[in-house]
């Protein structure tokens, strides 16, 4: 099997594409670039393209991955170099690497890093927000209640899902955080959830519609449980 793993960016206007819209757009870009894609069998043949971790509408990403199965190898450098004529502003293929066989991208992903920006009703100093974050993280458990489909309430502890959290920048009402959270099948924490719980903990009143998120990294883990890039998978 010839699998080309591609790291891509989804920024600016492209952040407003839903995952399904992204899938359709990428398929058409590949067709325009005349990539020799493999297709599924059946009445409605589809090219074989798999994605690492779908993003919600409105979230930008500097680092995302897809696998596309090809019928023959192409020159990756030329592919990256020529993409300019085919890409809408905001979508960009950063790097590509061939794999023979691989576990599905989605099952590989373990962690992702985000930058989160919020606006709160009162201005604050950076030192204060840092202190608050430290206190927030030093709680024994960090829980919220979630109703499941049967209307039963589950208590969820997100503490084990927070790998890192830092205050990057505070200017008056604007707070920017960087977080590293567990992502994937073994546990999943959305940065929106983390930020909301932190704001609640601090009694910060978030200005609606002013939250901005950007994914900046996506990781898997090796045998030693060390974070590695999805390109470094064996």
């Amino acid at each position: 099997m010839i699998i080309l793993r591609i790291q891509y960016k989804k920024e600016q206007n492209m952040k407003f594409l839903s995952h399904l819209e992204l899938i359709k757009t990428v398929e058409r870009i590949f067709r325009r670039m005349q990539l020799p894609m493999s297709f599924s069998q059946g009445f409605n043949p589809k090219p074989k393209i798999a994605y690492a971790a779908p993003l919600p509408v409105g979230v930008e990403s500097e680092c995302d991955f897809l696998d596309v199965e090809l019928t023959q190898k192409i020159d990756v450098d030329a592919f990256l170099k020529n993409q300019g004529d085919y890409m809408p502003t905001g979508l960009w293929f950063v790097e590509g690497k061939y794999f023979n066989k691989t576990k599905s991208l989605m099952s590989l992903v373990t962690d992702s890093a985000y930058i989160a920006q919020i606006e709160v009703s009162e201005p604050h100093e950076k030192a204060f927000v840092e202190e608050q974050l430290k206190a927030f993280l030093s709680q024994d458990v960090i829980t919220y209640e979630k109703k499941n489909k049967k209307n039963k309430i589950n208590v969820i502890d997100i503490k084990p899902l927070i790998q890192e959290a830092d205050v990057l920048f505070v200017e008056a009402n604007r707070i920017i955080l960087k977080v590293l959270v567990t992502t994937g099948s073994s546990g999943n924490l959305k940065p929106e959830q983390l930020v909301k719980m932190f704001a609640d903990y601090c009694n910060f009143e978030m200005v609606p519609g002013k939250e901005r998120y950007k994914r900046v990294d996506l990781f898997t883990r090796d045998e030693q449980n060390k974070l590695i890039s999805l390109f470094e998978v064996k």
Binding site: Q12, N13, F16, L17, S18, E21, T25, R28, I29, R32, V57, G58, Y86, P88, T89, G90
Partner: peptide
């Protein structure tokens, strides 16, 4: 929102 962004290919 994607129906308002313009910037289509």
């Amino acid at each position: 929102p994607s129906r308002y962004i313009g910037d289509e290919i």
